[in-house]
Design a binder for these strands. Sequence first.
DNA 1: GTGAATTGTGAATCACTCTTCACATTCCTC
DNA 2: GAGGAATGTGAAGAGTGATTCACAATTCAC
Lengths: 212, 212
Amino acid sequence: MRAPKADTVLRQEQITEAAMGLIAQHGMAGLSIAAIAERVGIVPSAVYRHFPGKEAVLDAVLDLLRIRMRANVEAVRAEFASPLEQLHALLHRHLTMLVENRAFPYVVFSHLAQEQDPARRARLEDTMHRFIQQVAEIVRQGQRNGEIRPDLSQRSVAVMFIGLVLPTALLFRLSQGEFDPLGHLRTAWPTFVRGIQADHTSHPTDRLRRQT
Amino acid sequence: MRAPKADTVLRQEQITEAAMGLIAQHGMAGLSIAAIAERVGIVPSAVYRHFPGKEAVLDAVLDLLRIRMRANVEAVRAEFASPLEQLHALLHRHLTMLVENRAFPYVVFSHLAQEQDPARRARLEDTMHRFIQQVAEIVRQGQRNGEIRPDLSQRSVAVMFIGLVLPTALLFRLSQGEFDPLGHLRTAWPTFVRGIQADHTSHPTDRLRRQT
DNA sequence: GTGAATTGTGAATCACTCTTCACATTCCTC
DNA sequence: GAGGAATGTGAAGAGTGATTCACAATTCAC
């Protein structure tokens, strides 16, 4: 039975999605052109009509990661005015995204291991660096706002923010759902805020400066 | 040229070490029995004299991770009396260990992906859970001590502690050494402490209870 | 020293995997 | 409707990797 012809951009989406599903289920070792083709409903050689090779498929998954991370940041920046609220919402969104897209961590480590092809590594580095920059920008506004201690390094706070999400998603996967990620965030978030927020007792006027 | 015979426990150590080196350099894809054998100086089939298969080698690396994590915890508990100082020292030790043993994250994700063999997954889960329990125990003592806020979940603080290390090691690898992990810890640690430490202004007598 | 156990070797097997290519089918343009 | 472009197919190539096995060399126990 012959598969009906489909536009190459649609097939690229299908192939990328199939790859993500396979990686999520069986890890990077479970990703093969044959398995992708079977999921899409075409023959292995047909994959090469839409991607130059296997590595290009992985790059497409990484692109998806960048797009989703960027979308999360922009969504919370549009939805909330307060930088702290933005960070809080981003925390939930980012965690949810990692839980739903279990393939992303594997792809990140796959790209991280590539020291032959520096360009692929550089793409990963750029993706992560950009995300950190965006979070750092929120932190910067929080500092101007008076919500966040001005003596903290914006980048350090951004890295700590990532540290709030990473182990949460990891433990959730590890425990097969026994660990409650959102419950953990409810506990961890106030602790994080206590660490970074400006000290209102020493500068009581900060409150007035909020939200310009 | 024939390799001299060597005791199987020595060969197991050599094989494990070779595997870790290969994974650190080329990621999980660079791990092959042939490559291991070449590093050790024997022939591929000789590896099977000392390990039943490739997966057993990965299990040996995971065992090494558990041993090193446990050693770190026990070392800081022996060296420092104050729970907060213990956590601080553990932070440095754990980060240093991750930087020196770059293979560990890959092996963790490799085991995480195993959903066929539940026993291998369970071993990873046990290793991580045990580490969290040990950190949580330090937190518990800090709470009895009055150094750490008593209303915090010990497990949550332990997970946050891990979140302090993970992205730091990840970014160090990602940036090829451009990101300064110890410098980041100098900034992040006081922020973390501010988040978890007991409020001395409301309970000034806590200070006297330190180090029982 | 002698036999058994241990360790190393080379070859072969088996199963994948990625990739290419000539050819078939379908779709779009004119 | 005709021609070309795009997509799908089957087969084959080329390589890799894990694993097994009979056999050789070494070491150990007695």
